[in-house]
Write a protein that binds this DNA or RNA. Structure first.
Lengths: 199, 199
DNA sequence: TTATAAATCGAACGTTCGTTCTATTTTTGT
DNA sequence: ACAAAAATAGAACGAACGTTCGATTTATAA
């Protein structure tokens, strides 16, 4: 790897650290330069614009996300097992990232700020939702979940429980161990297994 | 009302508009001055610091939130009816605010930024959660919900469904009419009525 | 090794930020 | 109506922002 790409990776690692532990708005070129011991202009030359830096950080974050929470799931034997494993690893991801998900932060910070960054984070989150939904569909096909399960509704509820878990833990509604998430998830799955009717 | 308080209210209305339609970070004194046709210093004199402005906007937003989604539910006959009514009005609130809740935005933007603003928004969200939880407790007491219902778990799930509904609608996971939220909420309530067992 | 290319720096730019002054205008109470 | 008080304006500040540019150091390939 050339020197350029090498330092760029280090810069991105530092940038991700700032963006997650602080926020995307606080990821500033001057601050990042200080954090990496570089000059503003030297660092800037790697990206040529703030927007490119932001996009690169999101790409970098996605890469790590896939490595740490998606790839390890491939070993699980069934779609439902994959799904549950993802939820587990997902929590670990958030925990490592100092209790704030960079994608969700970015989504909120850019939600009314049209541009390439908003488009990217939107597509990243949508991609995750589609992947989760795909697992649900497969689980239904393999009869791990009841045939009358509405996949999208299931995915929506699953994702919501996760989102709520993070949010309420932050607010202080007593879910620091995320046990509430686990319980609700377990019940959600049980509700869709064992052929008892439910729309 | 004195001239000062009067213009201050107008300023706050404009500030809330900016904070919701844009974001809290984009609520800047210069921008707000332009929006209200005042000078920066003239406007600044009303608050004496950016932080005070932010706190005032959150107070103002809470006031409006209470007026538009909490107060009207007082007329509902029962705790459960109040709860459902709140969910309905709540959606209206979000819709008016251009599909972004100022409290949740503020929570995310300030989540790792210690200070009075973070403390306030945290307490505001916690207060809402406690109020919802109180209604759930009352509904259980009045046997509108099954006796074995775990109130906090119920509140957690309810709130999560709402959060998820907003998030996914933004991302584009097809819930623009929030019908998914309605369905999930209905099922959540049904699940806790009619004495069938569920932990 | 040496020429070329890539990477990095330092200084400066125009803006905008929050904030602080000192005036000046406008409202208020008597 | 007038004096006191409150509200607003204007100009300026230091700092930080993203960005540009020319010079200089460092890595790469011949």
């Amino acid at each position: 790897m050339s020197k350029g790409k090498q330092t760029k990776q280090q810069v991105l690692a530092a940038a991700l650290q700032i963006a997650t532990s602080k926020s995307f708005n606080e990821l500033t070129i001057g601050r990042l330069a200080t954090a990496t011991g570089m000059s503003k202009s030297g660092l800037f030359a790697h990206f040529n614009s703030k927007e490119n830096l932001q996009l690169a950080v999101l790409d970098y974050a996605e890469q790590i996300f896939i490595e740490t929470v998606v790839i390890p799931t491939k070993e699980e034997p069934s779609p439902l097992a994959k799904l549950l494993k993802i939820c587990e690893l997902w929590q670990g991801w958030y925990r490592e990232q100092a209790y704030a998900c960079i994608f969700i932060s970015a989504a909120v910070e850019f939600d009314d700020q049209p541009g390439a960054v908003r488009d990217l984070v939107k597509s990243q989150l949508l991609e995750l939702l589609h992947y989760l939904n795909e697992l649900v569909v497969e689980a239904i096909a393999k009869k791990e979940l009841d045939a009358h399960t509405n996949a999208k509704q299931f995915t929506y509820e699953l994702y919501s429980l996760y989102l709520g878990s993070q949010h309420m833990s932050w607010v202080g509604f007593e879910d620091n161990t995320h046990s509430r998430f686990h319980l609700a998830l377990k019940q959600l799955v049980e509700r869709h297994t064992g052929e008892k009717n439910e729309q």
